[in-house]
Amino acid sequence: MANIVGVRFKNVGKVYYFDPDGLDLEMGQCVIVETARGVECGEVAMPLRTIEDGETPKPLKKVIRAANSDDLAQIERNRQREQQAFSICEAKIAAHKLDMKLVDVEYTFDNNKILFYFTADGRVDFRDLVKDLASVFRTRIELRQIGVRDEAKMLGGLGICGRPFCCSTFLGEFQPVSIKMAKEQGLSLNPTKISGTCGRLMCCLKYEQEAYEDLLRRTPKQGAAVNTPEGRGTVVEVNLLTGILKVKIDKSDGAARTFTKDQVKVIRDQSRGERGDNSTHKGREEK
């Protein structure tokens, strides 16, 4: 058995796992740990828990210590330095006439490196800029190009729903989102209606996708031939959320009748050429 704690280095960032090394740590407590970037200060985002040895994500590094008042003061000084570095870097970018937008600046806890995050439409030759910044700050400089979704996460803002961005409030990691999700959820495919402020598909399309996939498997599709209490007919309209179907009965005046999905049995799904069984529809997810 192994003890682990989860540590987060940004307000809404990825959680990394460490060995607490016998320390009694609480949620929200700041700790000093060693990372690939060097010594860092993070916040306990997942309290102590015990897992099987084989479930350990990878060889865990140990928590060095709980952060003290000097460590917290160091963090505050770094925040002030980051503001100054941001202004200096913006001026240097303008002086070098580079087509890039500075988004954020981050000092490592031990001040051994400064990271500058930027966006750009294409590749940027920033070698001269790095040399210029290194001569000013006298430490290691790293420029890291990020995407528009990462930019939105760092800067924050309000979405079209009127609420703060999900990515900057509670989403630790981005989930893959596809246009297929919008189609299956019956949403408008107008890019302005399904895209977030960042210009990419909205993260919230992912939230209900599993429920829609389950409903699609269990609900007859439009155009499917079905047996109903009033005879054989064809599905002409489907409401996935309510499970209400409108079926045009073959031997009738052509008017559509309303049934629930549990009242019908699929004979053939016209869109796939599948035959139904004696239970409710069990079609496969469309690709």
Rank of each mutant, 00 (worst) to 15 (best):
L23S: 05
L102A: 01
L115I: 15
L115Q: 03
E34D: 13
H96P: 02
D132L: 10
M46F: 11
G38C: 12
K61D: 09
A120K: 03
A73T: 11
R123D: 11
G42Y: 07
K92R: 07
D24P: 01
R123W: 03
V148E: 11
Y17S: 12
D21V: 03
R77A: 03
Y17V: 09
T50Q: 14
P47M: 09
E106T: 15
M27D: 12
L48N: 08
N68T: 09
V33F: 05
V130T: 09
S69G: 00
K101V: 13
C41S: 08
V44R: 10
I141T: 10
E55I: 07
L23N: 08
D53E: 15
V33K: 04
G54L: 07
A94K: 11
D125N: 10
T108K: 00
K61Q: 10
C30A: 14
N111A: 12
K131V: 12
D132P: 04
K58A: 12
V105M: 01
T119D: 05
L143A: 06
T50I: 11
E90I: 04
E82T: 08
A95D: 06
F126I: 15
Q80C: 05
E43M: 14
G122A: 11
G28A: 14
I141C: 05
V103Q: 05
L98Q: 01
G147A: 12
S135C: 12
A66V: 07
A91C: 00
K61S: 12
A36Y: 09
I75L: 15
G54I: 14
N68H: 10
F18W: 07
E26F: 13
A91L: 02
D99W: 02
D99S: 09
L133Q: 05
V39P: 13
R77T: 04
K62Q: 09
A94F: 01
D121R: 10
N78K: 07
E34L: 14
K62S: 09
A67H: 03
D128W: 09
F109G: 06
F118S: 00
R138I: 01
T139A: 10
F126T: 13
E142H: 03
E52P: 10
H96G: 02
F126V: 14
I64S: 02
G147W: 13
I114D: 02
F18M: 13
M27C: 04
I146T: 04
G122P: 04
F126Q: 09
D19W: 08
K92E: 13
I51H: 02
Y107H: 06
K113Y: 09
L129G: 04
L25I: 15
Y17H: 13
K61Y: 10
G147Y: 13
D121L: 05
E76N: 04
E34G: 07
R49I: 15
D132M: 09
C41A: 15
D128T: 09
A73I: 04
K58I: 05
R123I: 15
